[in-house]
Simulated scan of single mutants.
Amino acid sequence: MKAKMTDLQRLSLDVYNGVNVNFNEVSGEDAIRNAITDAVGGEFNYKNFRENKYRVFSILEEALDVTLGIVITNQFDNLAEVKNVATGDKISFKVSDQSLFRVARIAGGNNDLRRQKLLNKRFTVDTDKYGVKIYEELDMFIAGRIDWSSMIDRVAQSFANFMGTKIYEAIAKSYSSLNQTYGVTGTFDDDALFDMVQHVEAKSGKKAVIMGTRKALRTVTKGLNLSDSMKDDLNKVGYLTTVAGTDLYLLPQAHKIGTDEFLVDDNMLIVVPQDEKLVKVVVEGEALMLETAEAGDRNDQQMEYQLQKSFGVGVIQSAVYGIYKITG
């Protein structure tokens, strides 16, 4: 049963989505700040925070849970199915068998046929605990200059970025399990790509789509004889949304945290049945905020905290999909 969203979570969600809300005659951002101020007794200062910090932690944990939920759902909606479960719960994903039954000739006078079982598989995704460590100077706390709402958004985006790394790593690693029909490496050849499209469609019984970064999708259009309207569309968004009757979907590019290295492989095209989410993400339990260093624990008087969240990522190995790795 899905947990009911609290007023604070609904407010945090509206603030994140840029909804112009008015709560108790103040803006959404101010309402979150007021909730934290109320939690420490009405005045935010270091002594009050020290005495009531676990109430503040509870507010930030609630806000992080709902913000992270909407971030990962929005960013990976085309590629991944995200499920939230309570701590200790396990959820299994059902994978339907799309293969066709063999049709056999029946000899006259009997009805003997080899029986063929309907095969559907289930698998679970194991979760691990991950953490983000943050710190702030004591003077900033005393001055009340901590933008908690912005900090939670940054933490949620950091978790989502890390989760994105895990999702794309899982897809890339699954390439080795694909046979030569569904796992192709080499210089780009549109015939080879659309052979893969047809194989995915024939085996899944669904229309296939092609996914990739903007640079990867541009490769699909190179060498095509484009009409003026197609050239105009290509100029506007950087790729065509449909090529040879097949829809193209953009995978957003990002940097690996702390580097200028791209997160998503620009030389990889993924072919999947439409609306098929081959990656399964399980987010387990509620966020947890821990104090790892008080102001007096360090010579620089930095205050250090860790926000933890449990999640797991899995790719359906038996799903019908293809990966084209472009080498030139």
Results as ranks from 00 to 15, higher is better:
residue 264 V to R: 04
residue 233 D to V: 02
residue 282 V to G: 03
residue 55 R to Y: 02
residue 297 D to S: 14
residue 202 A to E: 11
residue 64 L to Q: 15
residue 290 L to K: 15
residue 196 M to A: 06
residue 63 A to F: 05
residue 164 G to L: 11
residue 54 Y to W: 08
residue 222 K to M: 08
residue 15 V to I: 12
residue 178 L to Q: 13
residue 176 S to F: 07
residue 254 A to I: 02
residue 42 G to V: 05
residue 220 V to Y: 01
residue 286 E to W: 01
residue 92 S to N: 14
residue 237 V to R: 08
residue 223 G to R: 04
residue 248 L to C: 06
residue 148 W to H: 15
residue 190 D to M: 07
residue 181 T to I: 11
residue 46 Y to T: 12
residue 169 E to Y: 05
residue 194 F to Q: 01
residue 301 Q to K: 14
residue 283 V to M: 06
residue 176 S to N: 10
residue 313 V to H: 10
residue 80 A to S: 14
residue 113 L to D: 08
residue 260 D to A: 06
residue 317 Q to E: 15
residue 327 T to Y: 11
residue 111 N to L: 14
residue 78 N to G: 14
residue 130 Y to V: 07
residue 264 V to F: 04
residue 229 S to E: 12
residue 121 K to A: 13
residue 259 T to M: 00
residue 143 A to F: 09
residue 242 T to C: 03
residue 273 P to Q: 03
residue 259 T to A: 00
residue 33 R to M: 12
residue 73 T to G: 12
residue 226 L to K: 02
residue 241 T to P: 05
residue 1 M to G: 11
residue 41 G to N: 06
residue 72 I to E: 13
residue 234 L to N: 03
residue 242 T to I: 04
residue 204 S to C: 06
residue 165 T to K: 14
residue 157 Q to T: 09
residue 203 K to W: 01
residue 112 D to H: 11
residue 297 D to K: 06
residue 178 L to M: 13
residue 137 E to Q: 14
residue 168 Y to P: 08
residue 116 Q to S: 10
residue 287 A to K: 03
residue 164 G to F: 10
residue 20 N to L: 08
residue 118 L to Y: 11
residue 279 V to S: 00
residue 205 G to Q: 09
residue 174 S to L: 07
residue 14 D to I: 00
residue 256 K to L: 07
residue 115 R to P: 09
residue 254 A to H: 02
residue 211 M to R: 01
residue 256 K to W: 00
residue 23 F to W: 10
residue 205 G to A: 06
residue 288 L to D: 08
residue 233 D to C: 00
residue 121 K to W: 12
residue 224 L to E: 06
residue 312 G to C: 05
residue 16 Y to V: 10
residue 54 Y to C: 02
residue 5 M to L: 15
residue 317 Q to R: 08
residue 19 V to F: 04
residue 278 L to P: 00
residue 195 D to W: 08
residue 246 T to Y: 03
residue 105 R to L: 13
residue 268 M to N: 00
residue 202 A to S: 13
residue 108 G to K: 14
residue 293 A to R: 05
residue 30 D to C: 02
residue 35 A to S: 15
residue 13 L to S: 10
residue 52 N to L: 06
residue 196 M to R: 05
residue 60 L to T: 10
residue 255 H to F: 13
residue 135 Y to R: 12
residue 144 G to H: 02
residue 192 A to E: 15
residue 286 E to M: 05
residue 132 V to T: 13
residue 248 L to P: 02
residue 179 N to A: 11
residue 266 D to G: 00
residue 274 Q to H: 09
residue 99 S to V: 15
residue 270 I to K: 00
residue 119 L to W: 04
residue 44 F to V: 11
residue 231 K to N: 08
residue 258 G to Q: 09
residue 51 E to Y: 12
residue 122 R to K: 13
residue 275 D to S: 05
residue 189 D to Y: 02
residue 131 G to A: 15
residue 162 F to K: 11
residue 2 K to F: 01
residue 316 I to H: 04
residue 160 A to W: 05
residue 40 V to Y: 01
residue 95 V to P: 04
residue 208 A to W: 01
residue 17 N to I: 08
residue 140 M to V: 15
residue 295 A to P: 02
residue 70 I to M: 07
residue 210 I to K: 03
residue 155 V to Y: 07
residue 164 G to K: 10
residue 131 G to E: 15
residue 244 A to P: 00
residue 271 V to D: 03
residue 22 N to F: 06
residue 22 N to L: 12
residue 61 E to H: 08
residue 122 R to V: 12
residue 299 N to A: 11
residue 247 D to I: 00
residue 292 T to W: 05
